[in-house]
């Protein structure tokens, strides 16, 4: 900085050859300028500028304040909206979860019911089959006995003699068994 000053001083002296021409640079004047300017600056800053720009500065401050307030309120509104949205999303999630849960429970229930129904059905079927088998067996036994009786009666008639003892019966039953096997 001072080298610049020295350069300028040299220039001034070099061109004017002394401190009298318009191109002379008087170092004392630099100090004077600073003193005058600084005094003026301080005085005006204290006694003049504040009163001239006060109204505008106040208005600026008010507007700035209002803008800041608006921004803050906006921020708050945004935050509460965010919170609201989050709550809504949570509620939706919960509802969804509940529905899913209910669905799965219903599904399970249905499965169980179906399984039980199937079981019962099978049981009933089984029982029916068993009863039919038993009935058939009984009917078959009856039929067989009837057949034996009829055969014996027929045989008695045929050979004119009473063939009623146990050994005869056995022969016929054996014969019938062979018939059964063939059929």
């Amino acid at each position: 900085m001072f080298s610049l000053l020295a350069l300028m001083l040299q220039e001034g002296h070099g061109q004017a050859g002394g401190a009298s021409g318009p191109f002379a640079l008087e170092p004392g004047l630099i100090i004077w300028t600073w003193i005058v300017f600084l005094a003026l600056f301080l005085l005006l800053r204290k006694f003049a500028w504040p009163f001239i720009v006060r109204a505008t500065e106040e208005r600026e401050r008010t507007i700035q304040q209002q803008l800041a307030d608006a921004e803050r309120l906006n921020e708050e509104a945004k935050a509460s909206l965010d919170k609201h949205n989050q709550l809504l999303a949570e509620a939706k999630d919960q509802a969804h979860e509940l529905v899913v849960q209910a669905k799965s429970i219903g599904e399970k229930e249905r499965e169980q019911l179906l399984a039980r129904a199937r079981e019962e059905q099978e049981e009933i079927l089984e029982r029916a089959k068993r009863e039919i088998d038993a009935e058939r067996d009984r009917a078959l036994a009856d039929l067989r006995r009837e057949a034996v009786d009829l055969s014996l009666a027929a045989a008695t008639k045929l050979i004119q003699q009473k063939l009623g003892d146990a050994s005869d019966r056995k022969i016929v039953e054996q014969y019938l068994a062979t018939l059964e096997d063939k059929s």
Binding site: E26, L29, W32, A39, L44, W49
Partner: peptide, 28 residues
């Protein structure tokens, strides 16, 4: 060498400063 003797231009600077201060002070 700094010579602080006021010159013509110093006087006019002071006049300018005074006038300026008076104007702005009055305006305020």
């Amino acid at each position: 060498t700094f010579n602080l003797t006021p010159t013509k231009h110093v006087v006019f600077m002071l006049v300018a400063g005074t006038l300026l201060f008076m104007t702005m002070w009055l305006v305020g």
